[in-house]
Design a binder for these strands. Structure first.
Lengths: 337, 337
DNA sequence: ATGAAAGCGCTAACAT
DNA sequence: ATGTTAGCGCTTTCAT
């Protein structure tokens, strides 16, 4: 009584039964205009707000969706989350955000938390697609899960990115300048964005004879640190690559740093392509050629799949691929050695 | 029975009363070892996970905190949210994220949603500090609110940033090169980060005579678009500024774009300072001098204040200011006209 | 140490 | 058209 008003207080104030208040709240037909008015007035007077927790409990749905991502501070993820939150909110859902830090323990832990909180669905990019424990936990979670740029487990809905085509285009673009010693830096090949990039990279070189193909592939992580480390080691080697593809969302910063630390000029000494677009790529001097896609579409589509799934739990698996395109800028030119 | 197991099923499986299961779950002392073992076994066997929704309902606390920000895709906000989520999670809380889009309607709407969802507290940066309707709603929300880089309403806890000192240092730094025609671009002066930047800017010029001070201040928004628009107009004017300070998180990109579009060189034609650090500032060529602070500290501190408040609702208002520093890089030099 | 039961705020099924 | 009530899953008080 002193605290937050409940439906009961509204009922008393309007002199009706609580069931009637509930009916008004939920727009049921069979309520007389007079009663409806009285109830509405009482609601306004008491500043009553329905308790979504109680509703969740009663209804068995929370209208809450969890979004688990590696690290929201990575440029690019923000746009996805932004779009997802907006799509979710306009459908009456609320977004719950959690960082996985790309650590399996955390993911497992988060899955439990999501389960306990009874979220209606989750959107996530797992750290690995072939860890059996993780896969098992994911499949046995009886919450709909939409994978983000992952395709395993296969029975899950997923929105993926066409990295393969993007990196193939990037590689062909570099070959067009005459590059043969091209390095691709990317993440753990057990995740889709890494192995698809590798696939696209190889496809672009498949017509080449063994002797003409001096491709270098370094895998490990999608991070800026990894990009810096690998680019540094590559660039200081005797037969350094004439072009580098930074195959990760956050990787470009590390690669640029390494290039700069070695006093090299882009594109004169080394050509660079970013596997994901960003402010940095667009506004660096020289600007960096990049593989681009719409993070907004990605986030929106994930929510779309989710909503579909929530509407029909037994519908067939949904798979949507977001297209990518190469945005040529100033960071590529012919090799000079 | 077919679905998710409840405490009741665990009780049946362990052949005890549900109250006893609850006691085991919550680590109460008075449970015999034998019973505890049986209960634990039943929990494991059934893969029982306590329902946090039911707990919330019973306990009147959700262990959920809402974070409302303008746009999570703005570089800089990610780090804050990241830090906040981590701090929150390690304290058993879950983060609920929502975008305000810097629109009052949305903020009002979000406040309602947060109230309905019975979040325990909210962290937010409001779009305005002097809108009476918004202020009233905020003060009347009976949820603890921690302001982020805002200081009104005054009765709220807040973590603020020392923009004043940062911009004063930036301005003095530019004056040290001999600049007199310096432009400050920043957001709506009704918000703290804008008026504090303006204050710092003015402080750095206060010793100057009227005739020697050709400062230009343009306010409106913190966005890249605003930065682009204002920098463009300033740069194409007859008496263009010799230095520009981009006083907003997302603004640098717009300013750099404008400079580039006019074919101007930094720092030869115009010196540039960013009011917030970013990958872009650090790795642009030339790299951009920036006012820097720790977003991680900012996010963590907000959570700290929240936790304190939750521990004592009637404690005095808490105010913490995060320090800033100027990171000199390559984007500033003497004016050349 | 453990069981029984009330009750958190709500919706929906059942009465009238 | 409206009132009454069971019950969602849990914690806690009160018995024993």
């Amino acid at each position: 009584m002193g605290g937050i008003p409940t439906i009961r207080e509204v009922a008393v104030a309007a002199d009706v039964a609580i069931g009637t208040v509930s009916r008004v709240l939920n727009g049921h037909k069979s309520v007389s205009d007079d009663v409806r008015r009285r109830v509405l007035k009482a609601i306004k007077k008491l500043k009553y707000e329905p308790d979504r927790v109680a509703q969740s409990m009663r209804l068995g749905v929370t209208r809450t969706v969890a979004f688990a991502t590696r690290d929201i501070s990575i440029p690019g993820f923000g746009a996805i989350v932004n779009a997802a939150e907006e799509a979710l909110r306009s459908n009456g859902y609320t977004l719950l955000l959690a960082m996985t830090d790309e650590r399996k323990e955390r993911e497992l832990n988060l899955l439990r938390i999501f389960q306990q909180r009874r979220v209606d669905a989750v959107i996530m990019a797992t750290s690995s697609e072939d860890d059996t424990e993780l896969s098992k936990r994911i499949r046995s979670a009886d919450i709909p899960i939409v994978l983000l740029d992952r395709e395993n487990p296969l029975q899950l809905d997923a929105v993926t990115l066409d990295h393969r085509r993007g990196i193939r285009a990037a590689t062909e673009y570099l070959r067009g300048f005459g590059h043969t010693r091209i390095a691709l830096l990317t993440g753990n090949p057990s995740t889709r964005p890494a192995h698809e990039r590798i696939a696209g990279f190889k496809e672009a070189s498949s017509h080449l004879g063994k002797h003409a193909n001096h491709s270098i592939i370094r895998t490990g992580a999608f991070s800026a640190e990894f990009g810096f480390r690998e680019a540094s080691s590559l660039l200081s080697g005797a037969t350094r690559p004439t072009a580098i593809i930074a195959g990760g969302m956050a990787m470009l910063a590390g690669v640029l740093q390494a290039v700069r630390a070695r006093g090299l000029k882009i594109p004169d000494d080394v050509s660079v392509i970013a596997g994901a677009d960003s402010d940095l790529a667009a506004l660096a001097t020289p600007s960096i050629t990049a593989v681009r896609w719409s993070g907004t579409d990605e986030g929106r589509m994930a929510v779309q799949l989710l909503l579909n799934r929530l509407g029909n739990r037994s519908a067939p698996v949904q798979r949507v691929m977001i297209s990518t395109e190469l945005i040529p800028r100033e960071s590529c030119g012919p090799p000079t050695r």
